[in-house]
Amino acid sequence: MTDTGAPRTLEPPAPAAPHTPSPWRRMRLWGIAHAVDDLYQGLVPASVPYFVLDRHYGYVAASGLTLAATLGSSVPQPFIGIAVDRLRAGWLAGAGVAVAGVALGLSGLVPSYPAVWCLLLLSGLGVAMFHPAAGKAAREAAGDSAAAMSVFAAGGSVGFFLAPVLATPALIAWGVGATALFVPPAVLTAYVLLRRHRRQGPPAAARSARTGRDRWRPFGVLTAVEVIRSIVFFGMNTFVELYWIRHLHASRTLAGAALTCFLAGGVAGTLLGGRIADRIGLVRTVRLGSALAVPALAGLLLVPGSTAPLLFAVLTGLTLNLPFAVLVKLGQDYLPTRPGTAAGVTLGLAVSVGGLFTPLLGRVAEAHGPQGVLTVLCFVPPLALLLALLLPEPGRS
């Protein structure tokens, strides 16, 4: 081959394809903050059995503690979401973590039931302050990736998971006063979030404004699905330890392990649900989780012994949380111009409203024991499945 002597023109190298950070790198701050915030929500049901055992509260009084935290976190959520969308009050995320942690930490130190109840109400209010602001910021970081959004949502599941893991040994050793040990994480997380907000400022959120048509009817159906899911979640959270102690006659340690298994399954289900949704669609994932929750709950009740049912505790948590991140993202897709409001409802109001039913479940426990509560919960997920059949995909009219 001969050289023609013609000058050669060197082509510039093609620009490298932009690197997309992994879901974890994009969402780690908000995932960790969500874990810390929901740690305090998870500490309420984790500590309720010890208020029953150490202070001799009845089932209804114990359910009232869950109700207090639920009222604080549920009722203000829509109003806080509106404030986040209209006033860009991003600082509420950091302030909410601080209020949730400090109030919860003090609840085990005060002697009277009314004081405990009020502090748990205030802790719930802190949770309500966090979710809309954090949910809006997390969606801006996640974009349209359900897997990325699942990292943020899984942070909440991690917080619930860590609550009994960290609290059970401390509560067994020192009683309910050990709640004071959990104040420092709230203060540190609040400092990081408030410092970030001062540095970034409101204009960053304004640049990420979304447009589109809000679809309130499917959003209402989705909210009902989330409420039904949260009834089962709160019922399990509140009574699964007492089921192991009072019905299966297991030790407190094994009962704590049962709650831990349930919440560990919830973490796995939240992360798995986001990846499944990216493959098969958001609505199908919601239906899948609702359908699979029924056999998981039935297995928990029917398998004999006190160790073998731990597997079904994991499966129950997994199936219940399979739609969790999906519901959050789907709600923001239905309300594209109101991401803070959507997050406040799906992460806060709808989830917390499930706790409002715990006093009714407490009545069932008074009459039929904790096993009666779990039996009732077996009949709840089919309602979520029926409603999920009415949900349209977000891109379809």
Rank of each mutant, 00 (worst) to 15 (best):
F239G: 09
V192K: 07
H34E: 05
L360A: 15
L297K: 12
P164N: 08
P76V: 01
D3P: 03
A154G: 13
L301Y: 12
V364A: 13
V158R: 01
G317D: 08
R199N: 09
A95H: 00
R88S: 15
A6M: 04
A137N: 05
V373E: 14
S397E: 15
A170S: 11
P392Y: 04
L222V: 04
P359L: 07
A342R: 05
H34C: 07
W30V: 14
N237D: 11
F152A: 12
G281K: 05
G81W: 02
F233T: 15
L104P: 13
V99D: 07
R210D: 10
G72T: 06
G317M: 05
P23F: 09
A350L: 13
Q371D: 15
P7Y: 06
A153K: 06
E393Y: 03
P382W: 05
G175C: 09
P18W: 06
A343T: 07
V187H: 02
K329I: 13
L360E: 06
I245S: 12
Y191L: 14
P218L: 09
P13L: 13
A17D: 11
G362D: 05
L43G: 10
L259S: 11
A100L: 03
G58R: 07
R396E: 15
L390M: 14
E11G: 15
T168C: 01
D144L: 00
A93N: 04
V183W: 11
G269W: 00
G340M: 12
R210K: 12
L125E: 03
L106H: 05
F219C: 11
S230P: 08
T211C: 02
F262M: 04
P218G: 09
L125A: 09
L10D: 15
G81H: 02
P78Y: 11
G58L: 10
F219D: 10
V60T: 15
A173Y: 02
A173R: 08
V158S: 00
L391W: 09
L67Q: 10
I82F: 10
W244C: 05
G269V: 00
L122H: 04
G94W: 00
V286L: 03
P49V: 07
P295F: 05
D3E: 10
L171I: 03
G159R: 00
R195Q: 14
G344F: 00
L67Y: 07
P111L: 08
G177A: 05
V99A: 07
F262Y: 12
A138C: 09
S397I: 10
G372S: 10
L311R: 00
G135P: 02
L389A: 13
K136H: 14
G64C: 08
V283K: 06
A343Y: 04
P381M: 02
G94T: 00
P359H: 09
L387R: 15
A115V: 03
L385K: 03
A205E: 02
A325P: 14
A98W: 01
V99E: 08
G126S: 04
A6F: 03
T253Y: 04
F160N: 11
V345D: 10
L292I: 01
L106R: 10
